[in-house]
C-alpha cells in the first residue's frame, strides 16, 4: 500500500502532505505536553518493532500472503498520539532508506497508514468501547473492538488509497476501489487476528504496557518494575 512517486497528481499529494504535516505537528505538541525526553528511546525501539513485525508475512489463502500494518496495534499499545508518531517515523524511514513509498507521496502514505489506519480507526474504536464496556466488561470489550477496528483500519486505508489514485486520474475508481477493498478486507482478517492476539498476550504478561487498557494516555515509565512488572 506504499504509494510510489508519480502515482498522485500535485493537488492530491499537496493537500495530503499539508494534512499529514498538520496532524504530525499537533501530535508532537500533544506528546510533548505529557512526556519528556525519556520516552524517545522507547518510541524508537517500538518503531523498529513495528518495522520488523511488518516483515512477518502471513498466509492469506493458498499461496498468496499479506503483511502486517500495525497502525492500530501501535495506537492500542502506546496510546493514540505516540502510536501515530511511531507510524510516521516508520513510514519516513521506509521512504528515505528503503525507497518504500515515494517522497512526494509520503504525505499520502502517512495519511492512509497513520492518520486513517491509526488515529481515525483508534478514535472510532474508543467510541465503540464506551458503549460496549458496560455489557462486555473492560477486557473483552477491548479485545472485541480491537479485532473489529484493526480489520476496519486496513480496509479504510486501502479505500483512502484507492480514492487518492482515482482523484489523481491514475486509475478509474470503479476498477481500483473494488479490487483494493476486496483484497484488503481479506488481508484485514489477518491484521485483526494478529493485533488481537498480541493485545491479549500482552494483557496477560504485562498489562501495564497496554495503554488502551490502562486508559491513562501516558506511556509506561521505561524504568520498568514500577507498576506490575
Amino acid at each position: 500500500m506504499h504509494i510510489p512517486d508519480g502515482f498522485l497528481d500535485p493537488k492530491t499529494w499537496g493537500a495530503l502532505t499539508a494534512a499529514s504535516a498538520g496532524t504530525t505537528g499537533y501530535a508532537l505538541y500533544k506528546v510533548r505536553e505529557k512526556m519528556d525526553e525519556k520516552i524517545i528511546p522507547m518510541l524508537g525501539i517500538t518503531a523498529a518493532f513495528i518495522f520488523a513485525a511488518q516483515m512477518l508475512n502471513f498466509p492469506v489463502a493458498g499461496g498468496t500472503s499479506g503483511h502486517f500494518l500495525g497502525a492500530m496495534l501501535a495506537c492500542v499499545l502506546l496510546g493514540a498520539w505516540p502510536g501515530f508518531l511511531v507510524m510516521v517515523v516508520v513510514l519516513v524511514v521506509q521512504c528515505l532508506f528503503f525507497a518504500d513509498g515515494g517522497l512526494t507521496a509520503l504525505g499520502a502514505n502517512v495519511f492512509n497508514m497513520a492518520v486513517v489506519a491509526g488515529l481515525l480507526s483508534y478514535f472510532l474504536m474508543v467510541l465503540a468501547r464506551k458503549t460496549l464496556s458496560r455489557p462486555l466488561g473492560d477486557k473483552s470489550s477491548l479485545l472485541v473492538t480491537t479485532a473489529f477496528f484493526s480489520w476496519l483500519s486496513v480496509v479504510l486505508a486501502s479505500a483512502a488509497c484507492s480514492f487518492e489514485l482515482a482523484i489523481s486520474g491514475t486509475v478509474p475508481l470503479s476498477t481500483v476501489l473494488p479490487a483494493m477493498v476486496g483484497v484488503h478486507s481479506v488481508i484485514g482478517i489477518g491484521e485483526a487476528v494478529i493485533t488481537t492476539v498480541v493485545v491479549a498476550v500482552v494483557l496477560q504478561a504485562r498489562p501495564d504496557l497496554v495503554d488502551a487498557y490502562r486508559g491513562a494516555g501516558v506511556l509506561p515509565v521505561p524504568a520498568g518494575g514500577e507498576e506490575a512488572a
Partner: peptide, 30 residues
C-alpha cells in the same frame, strides 16, 4: 500456514517480539 486463520501463530510471534523489544527498551534506557 496456508489459510488466513493461521495468522494467529504470527500473532504470538509479534506479541513476544513486542514484549522482548519493550524489555530491551527499558534496559537500553536505564
Amino acid at each position: 500456514g496456508r489459510w488466513i486463520w493461521h495468522a494467529r501463530v504470527v500473532g504470538y510471534m509479534v506479541a513476544s517480539l513486542f514484549l522482548r523489544s519493550q524489555e530491551r527498551a527499558e534496559r537500553v534506557y536505564q
